[in-house]
């Protein structure tokens, strides 16, 4: 029973369930999480409030879940958008070649040359911060490495005799892409998209923590963490510890799934 295919499948199912549960619970609790109740402020973790409460008497478990839920939704959206962007631009590079390739490759180098966090802050501020600012910032800074991978794979496939055969037998570029390229690109693409999740979530949290992302009234992990900084010195450790740990856990879950998928789908390690 100890084979990687089965254990990976179990892990993927478990992770997907856990993440869906968090996303769902957070979305349901989002409205209740913001309610202030000054009769129960600054409670340490206990049975009533597992993660404790803050200085306004808000339940930290609810706020954490709501924040994670928002992070997961932003992560999913950005992974999908940047995945689509890299697929389109990467294949365009390889198929059209010439100045199209030169242009897109130049943009890829340019974007990769700027540190991620700087680029995200710039784009987020330029787009007026908030949900769309963060999402666009992460999407526009994260498509490059996957686009480069897709470009190289497509270039190699485009030279393969069976694709040349299809072309000489009259298949159009669209048909070649649908019938021959897409099935070959899919494993790398899927892995790339899943591995983009943890990046997106961490960047969203860090940009928000620095104050350039989501607005303070939104239940975001970055907001919770940056607020809790002011209370750490007064001994309220639970305000930062539990939300921080949950963020690490969710990120690790995504990264683990992505890594397992990579090992399983890569030809060199698929049979181990």
């Amino acid at each position: 029973m100890k084979n990687r295919r089965k254990s990976t499948l179990l892990l993927v199912i478990f992770a997907a369930l856990a993440l869906c549960l968090v996303a769902l619970a957070g979305a349901l609790m989002a409205s209740g999480a913001g309610i202030a109740d000054f009769t129960r402020k600054n409670l340490p973790p206990g049975w009533g409030h597992l993660f404790g409460t803050d200085w306004m008497g808000r339940d930290m478990l609810g706020r954490t879940l709501a924040g994670l839920s928002l992070s997961i939704r932003i992560g999913a959206l950005t992974a999908l958008l940047s995945g689509g962007l890299s697929l389109a631009l990467g294949t365009a590079c390889a198929v059209f070649g010439g100045w199209v390739d030169g242009c897109i490759s130049w943009i890829v180098d340019l974007v990769m040359g700027i540190p991620h966090i700087l680029l995200i802050i710039l784009i987020s501020v330029a787009c007026g911060r908030g949900f769309w600012g963060v999402t666009l910032g992460v999407v526009l800074s994260h498509w490059t490495s996957l686009a480069r991978l897709v470009r190289e794979e497509t270039l190699q496939l485009w030279q393969a005799p069976y694709i040349r055969m299809a072309r000489q037998l009259g298949a159009s570029q669209g048909e070649v892409f649908r019938k021959h390229l897409a099935p070959h690109l899919f494993p790398q693409f899927l892995t790339g998209v899943i591995l983009q999740f943890p990046h997106a979530i961490l960047h969203e949290a860090s940009v928000t923590f620095l104050g350039f992302g989501l607005s303070p009234e939104q239940p975001a992990i970055g907001v919770i963490l940056s607020e809790s900084m002011g209370y750490l010195a007064t001994g309220r450790w639970w305000l930062a510890l539990f939300p921080g740990l949950s963020l690490v856990l969710v990120t690790a879950l995504f990264a683990g799934v992505g890594e397992r998928m990579r090992l399983l789908l890569a030809p060199a390690s698929a049979q181990e």
Partner: peptide, 8 residues
Amino acid sequence: EEAVDPLL
């Protein structure tokens, strides 16, 4: 073997 798509 190179002239046929291995996934089809």
